Amino acid sequence: MSVAICSLKWESARTGPQRIAYDRDGYHLVRFPYAEQEEAYDPWKMHDPAHGGAKASKFPDARSGLIWPSHDGWGTLSALVFWEPDGRPTEYRARFVRDPLGLSTGYDSTATTDTEPTRGGQYRSYVWQMFVHPGTPVGLKISARGPGDAKLAAPLLLAEFKLAIQTDVIRPEGDSGGHQGP
């Protein structure tokens, strides 16, 4: 089985705090630096600043939150998010989104997860699988919400976002795969 991988990591200890800015959908697109970092891996250039615009993206602009799949295939998306425990949020949300900036096929969220705070640190991991395609970027969006559904700027400590694409998905003879398949 062939697998193409992109693994991104952002840490507040290395780059400073990430300003949380909520989009119209009430979520923040997590941004990732372009420079090579520990645990970052991108030999297929899926997180290349040249993708998605006339000029190169620069961290922390919105395009630095995108992974552009290098192949058609079955994608396993995974994420890790550490929030600073500050006691204000009453729930934490995350979702994976196809084309979160509306640059190609249009915003399409999937796998929204909603959790309440724990007594200790606020550490979350997420996994989702779906078909992915070159030309349709994917992103990780998060939200911290307080009483009355108020969106809070709860600080992030760490975020990781990974895409593994199985490039050799097979189909039964005669199956066209529909519009979502490879």
Rank of each mutant, 00 (worst) to 15 (best):
L77T: 01
Q37N: 12
P117Q: 08
I5W: 06
T112V: 10
C6Y: 02
R98G: 02
S125P: 03
G87K: 02
A40H: 08
V3A: 12
E36L: 13
P89D: 03
W74A: 10
G73Y: 00
R24T: 12
G53E: 04
T15Y: 15
Y41L: 14
H71T: 05
R14W: 15
Y126P: 03
F96P: 00
G52T: 03
G16P: 00
Q18I: 07
T110P: 02
K45W: 06
T110K: 04
I5G: 07
D25C: 13
F82W: 14
Y41A: 11
R88F: 10
S70V: 05
H71C: 04
Y22D: 05
Y27Q: 06
V97G: 00
E36I: 09
H47G: 06
A21I: 14
P89E: 02
R63G: 04
E91D: 09
W68L: 04
Y27H: 12
D25R: 13
P117D: 10
R98M: 05
E84A: 12
D25L: 11
T110R: 08
A21L: 15
T110N: 05
S64M: 05
W10D: 01
G53T: 03
H51A: 02
W83G: 01
Y123I: 14
S7C: 13
R24L: 15
G16Y: 07
K45T: 04
S78I: 02
R93V: 09
P33Q: 12
T76C: 06
R95T: 03
K58E: 12
E91N: 09
A21V: 15
A21Y: 13
S12V: 14
P89W: 00
I20E: 04
D108M: 05
A21Q: 15
D23G: 14
Y22E: 05
D86F: 04
I5R: 14
G53Q: 04
G52N: 04
A35C: 10
C6M: 09
P49K: 06
Y34A: 07
L77Y: 01
K45A: 11
P43V: 08
A13H: 13
G52R: 01
G102Y: 06
G65Y: 00
A56R: 09
I5V: 14
A13I: 14
V30N: 01
Y92S: 00
A50E: 13
S12D: 11
G120K: 07
K58D: 11
V30F: 04
G87H: 02
S12F: 10
A111M: 09
G65R: 01
R63E: 06
D23E: 15
A21C: 12
Y27I: 04
L103N: 04
T110S: 11
L77H: 01
D23A: 15
H28P: 01
P89K: 00
V81N: 02
H47T: 11
R31F: 07
V127R: 07
C6V: 10
S7H: 14
Q122I: 09
I20K: 03
F96H: 01
A40G: 12
G75H: 02
S70Y: 01
Y92P: 00
Q122M: 06
R95K: 13
V81G: 02
I67M: 02
F59L: 12
P100Q: 08
P117A: 10
L77V: 02
E11Y: 13
T76I: 07
S109P: 15
L66V: 01
D114V: 15
R14V: 13
P100I: 06
R93C: 10
D25T: 12
G106K: 13
E11A: 13
T105H: 13
Y107G: 03
R19C: 06
M46S: 01
D72K: 04
T76Q: 11
D114P: 00
